[in-house]
């Protein structure tokens, strides 16, 4: 399994599903978000726990608080999705919370650039589990129209794991609602996306490999500072 986790992108759909199921059944593995201590103690089959799991999945799929998080163009359409005509709250998913500690879902609405990626990673890390990510727009899929830019991260998946991608530039509010509804459906059915290994992680500066750029920056950056290293050449 570990050899597969080193691959940046898993393209085989069935394999993704298999891995998700395996991860859920065996407890450990890539996705440990839904597995309770009880399940570890009782194993995966007892009736009560299965029902309880179903109930919990239903709960998580029926109601969610969103993080009030705007980045770029898509955030305007996201605001429209929350408000009058489209009213995402009909799906019990329209309560924007300003603090990441109280949010379940982060909608990533826009282009992520090098300066922002560490901050977004930080915000994501501050959210309590179980948390879900909706990538909104082409920029969160691949960098979209700005993919060739010197400063643009080639998709949100490079930084945080994404559960649902909503394509479009920007997606219409209807599309975002469909995306959120799909996410709720997936959660309610007990599927969540596998956590892929991300190329860009926050690290302490002195944990980085000693190479030319690290040496060059050594007197500017404190050893304990959190940094993100971008290897643009390896980016998709």
């Amino acid at each position: 399994m570990s050899s597969e986790r080193d691959r940046p992108f898993v393209t085989d759909d069935t394999q993704v599903q298999t891995e998700t199921r395996d991860a859920r059944m065996t407890g450990g593995g890539a996705d440990n978000r839904f597995n309770s201590k009880l399940r570890e103690a009782f194993g995966s089959s007892p009736f009560i726990l299965t029902k309880f799991d179903q109930f919990m999945n239903w709960v998580r799929g029926s109601s969610m608080f969103m993080l009030q998080f705007g980045i770029a163009c898509c955030s305007i359409e996201m605001m429209h999705t929350y408000s009058v005509k489209h009213d995402l709250d009909r799906f019990a998913a329209g309560v924007p919370r300003a603090s990441p500690r109280q949010a379940d879902v982060i909608i990533v609405p826009g282009t992520i650039v090098s300066k922002f990626a560490p901050r977004m990673k930080r915000v994501y890390d501050q959210m309590p589990e179980p948390k879900f990510v909706v990538g909104m727009g082409s920029c969160t899929i691949s960098g979209g129209p700005f993919q060739e830019g010197y400063n643009v991260i080639k998709g949100a998946e490079e930084v945080i794991p994404v559960d649902i991608h909503v394509p479009g530039c920007p997606p219409r509010p209807e599309a975002l609602i469909y995306g959120v509804a799909k996410l709720q459906q997936r959660i309610a059915e007990g599927e969540s996306s596998p956590v892929t290994v991300k190329p860009y992680e926050l690290e302490q500066f002195d944990d980085l490999e000693q190479d030319e750029i690290v040496e060059k920056l050594a007197d500017q950056i404190d050893e304990d500072d959190l940094v993100m290293r971008y290897n643009w050449a390896d980016s998709p």
Partner: peptide, 27 residues
């Protein structure tokens, strides 16, 4: 661009593929 950026991207011989390190100091 972040303070720690290397090079000036709109100058003529900027290598877009060179690695960059960005700090997170608001954490």
């Amino acid at each position: 661009l972040p303070e720690t950026w290397q090079g000036h991207p709109l100058s003529q011989n900027y290598d877009q593929d060179r690695p960059q390190i960005v700090t997170l100091d608001e954490w």
